[in-house]
Amino acid sequence: MLSHEIDGRAFTELAGVSFDHQGAELAGHVLLDTLEDAGYSTDDFDAVGALTAAAVPFADAMLHAAASRGQDLDAFVMDFVYPSIKGPSIKGKRVVLLDAWLSEKSFVQTSSLVTLRHGNELSLDCGIVSREGAELVAVASLVGGVGGGMDGAQAGGGPTARALRTKLELIDPVDDSRRTLPFICAYDERLFSPAAASEPQR
């Protein structure tokens, strides 16, 4: 399903997966499994926050996947109109921020992709979470391309190969403090065949 969405496109919000009944269910479980493989079970975080509109259905999918396992997980959405969150309070909670496809490439389709290129908006996300009284433990995505390398797979190893793990350095826009967070994604974008960045999105 991801190959069908990604191959031949410069970027996609993966709506063909997130709004498909089977795709959403699978994505929720894959994201939970990938985080757990990286050392973050639902015992280690209490809520997942959608960085972009494309991530909202995936955060919801994780909430339902966790519920099907008898686990408690809340979800929320980053709000940039008035820097805050939408959803249950995250005060005192440990949170993971989530996007659908988070990449270093200089695409401009979503705020998070611009963020990783220039280092501003994702740092703002971190600052908002901190000021909501929550602890940010990791950043995650279903598909990613942020340095590092793949665990247990080589590029071109097939659409079931995963995952990419690396670190992101964020700067708090209020006090200029720096922190490094793990970045965990289920599938490395190099497993697929996206169009060159200069090609228009279909």
Results as ranks from 00 to 15, higher is better:
1 M>K: 10
3 S>E: 12
4 H>L: 11
7 D>P: 13
9 R>I: 12
9 R>W: 08
10 A>C: 11
10 A>Y: 07
11 F>E: 04
14 L>A: 05
16 G>N: 02
16 G>Y: 04
17 V>R: 08
18 S>D: 04
21 H>K: 15
22 Q>Y: 11
22 Q>D: 13
23 G>D: 03
30 V>N: 06
30 V>Q: 06
31 L>A: 03
31 L>T: 11
33 D>F: 04
33 D>G: 07
33 D>M: 02
35 L>I: 05
37 D>A: 15
37 D>Q: 15
39 G>E: 04
40 Y>F: 15
40 Y>S: 03
40 Y>K: 03
42 T>F: 00
44 D>T: 14
45 F>K: 06
45 F>V: 04
49 G>K: 00
50 A>C: 05
52 T>W: 04
54 A>P: 09
55 A>I: 04
56 V>L: 02
57 P>C: 00
58 F>D: 01
60 D>H: 12
61 A>C: 03
62 M>W: 05
62 M>Y: 00
64 H>N: 12
64 H>Y: 13
64 H>F: 11
65 A>I: 03
66 A>M: 00
66 A>D: 05
69 R>F: 01
70 G>N: 05
70 G>K: 07
72 D>K: 14
72 D>E: 14
74 D>F: 00
74 D>Y: 01
75 A>M: 08
77 V>C: 03
77 V>R: 01
80 F>L: 08
80 F>E: 05
81 V>F: 13
82 Y>T: 12
83 P>D: 07
84 S>I: 03
86 K>D: 09
88 P>D: 00
90 I>S: 01
90 I>P: 02
92 G>I: 08
93 K>A: 10
93 K>M: 03
94 R>M: 04
96 V>T: 11
97 L>Y: 09
97 L>K: 04
98 L>T: 05
100 A>V: 06
100 A>D: 03
101 W>C: 01
103 S>E: 11
103 S>M: 02
109 Q>K: 13
109 Q>W: 12
109 Q>Y: 14
109 Q>H: 14
112 S>N: 09
113 L>P: 01
113 L>V: 15
115 T>I: 10
115 T>Q: 13
116 L>N: 11
119 G>N: 08
121 E>C: 12
122 L>R: 07
122 L>V: 12
123 S>N: 06
124 L>E: 12
125 D>E: 09
126 C>K: 11
129 V>C: 00
130 S>F: 11
130 S>Q: 15
130 S>G: 10
133 G>S: 01
133 G>R: 07
134 A>G: 04
135 E>L: 08
138 A>D: 01
143 V>D: 01
144 G>L: 01
144 G>V: 06
146 V>P: 02
147 G>P: 07
147 G>D: 07
148 G>V: 07
149 G>C: 09
149 G>Q: 14
152 G>F: 07
153 A>I: 10
153 A>R: 00
155 A>W: 04
157 G>I: 09
158 G>Q: 04
159 P>T: 14
161 A>V: 14
165 R>A: 09
165 R>Q: 10
166 T>S: 13
168 L>E: 06
169 E>V: 14
169 E>L: 10
169 E>Y: 07
169 E>H: 10
173 P>C: 01
175 D>F: 08
177 S>P: 03
180 T>E: 15
181 L>D: 08
185 C>H: 00
185 C>V: 08
188 D>G: 06
190 R>S: 12
190 R>Q: 10
190 R>V: 09
190 R>L: 04
193 S>C: 09
193 S>L: 14
195 A>P: 03
195 A>S: 11
196 A>C: 10
198 S>P: 08
200 P>Q: 08
200 P>E: 08
202 R>N: 12
